[in-house]
Design a binder for these strands. Structure first.
Ligand code: MN
Ligand code: MN
Ligand code: ZN
Ligand code: ZN
Lengths: 153, 153
DNA sequence: GCTTAATTGCAACTCGTTTGCAACATCGGC
DNA sequence: GCCGATGTTGCAAACGAGTTGCAATTAAGC
């Protein structure tokens, strides 16, 4: 259930991103491919600024404006191509996402390192949510602590 | 375990807030009392702006600057007198807090109403946190949904 | 190729929050 | 009660992530 190949393409790494854009009804542009390629190659999550720096430095796409990064990310998020993470530190972060990529993170309070937690404890253990009368309930859950590297003092 | 009375005070409603400030080593000022009184009388949580409006309108304390609200809230939070809530909507909120006031919220995506959930499912059910090697782990958990009032269409 | 609609760059803007600094109020000591 | 040291406040200016208007550019369909 992956890796569909275009008959005439020689750039295999980009086929997935191109397909994703075409399927979403978006035009295939250099900045968009570069963003999707970055997020596919590193889990992140990355801030728009970090994405901008990396995309601009990458040979693939020449420099592009930060505004373009913001606008692409907004589009991608609206189409559920990526997930937005908010760790409450004044900037947002993005990682590749979609339906079945729901997961959570643990962030080191000192070095800010972000680890992804593979399982969602809310879904897994069917935590008893107090009956609130709310419908269509989703959740946001993040953990904070001191990572092994940082408590080696 | 509450309601210590100052021998000479006639303003009984303010004794708690005054004690809290004195115990924290902070000077007792009108804006600080007004903020603590507000948070003691309504659960909130409130944005700094909302606090500013209510404090300024309250007869108790004359107008004070928004900057003062921010500075008081920062001090209070540092001393764990209040808790900061971040619902990811571009502004922060505060409610009375401290050690044993840990709880979570469910926010309506439409009308933005905030309900407090009395129990913490993470602590209650000792959710098996994947062994991350992190120490001193805390968490942030919020729920989002459509409240009963809003899905009456 | 040509047309049209989407995308981009640039500059200006928004808005929550922070900071510098001088005026001021609180508190402990007298 | 007054006084001085220290903490607190108001005002204005700055900050920074994110947004918006608009003209120039480019991808996509024919
Ligand atoms: Mn992740
Ligand atoms: Mn609450
Ligand atoms: Zn989850
Ligand atoms: Zn909890």
């Amino acid at each position: 259930m992956a890796t569909k190949h275009h008959a005439h393409s020689h750039k295999h790494e980009k086929v997935d991103a191109e397909d994703a854009l075409r399927n979403a009804g978006l035009k295939v542009t250099k900045p968009r491919l570069a963003i999707l390629d970055l997020l596919a190659s590193e889990h992140g999550p990355f801030t728009p600024d970090e994405i901008h720096v990396r995309v601009t430095q990458s040979k693939a796409a020449g420099a592009c404006d930060l505004v373009t990064i913001y606008r692409c990310l907004a589009k991608f998020e609206g189409l559920s191509l990526i997930n937005r993470c908010d760790f409450g530190d004044g900037t947002v972060r993005y990682e590749l996402g979609g339906k079945d990529h729901h997961h959570h993170h643990i962030i080191c309070r000192l070095c800010k390192r972000v680890d992804s937690l593979p399982d969602c404890p809310v879904e897994d253990k069917s935590i008893k949510l107090p009956k609130t009368g709310f419908r269509n309930v989703s959740h946001r859950l993040e953990f904070f602590g001191i990572c092994p590297d940082c408590y080696a003092d």
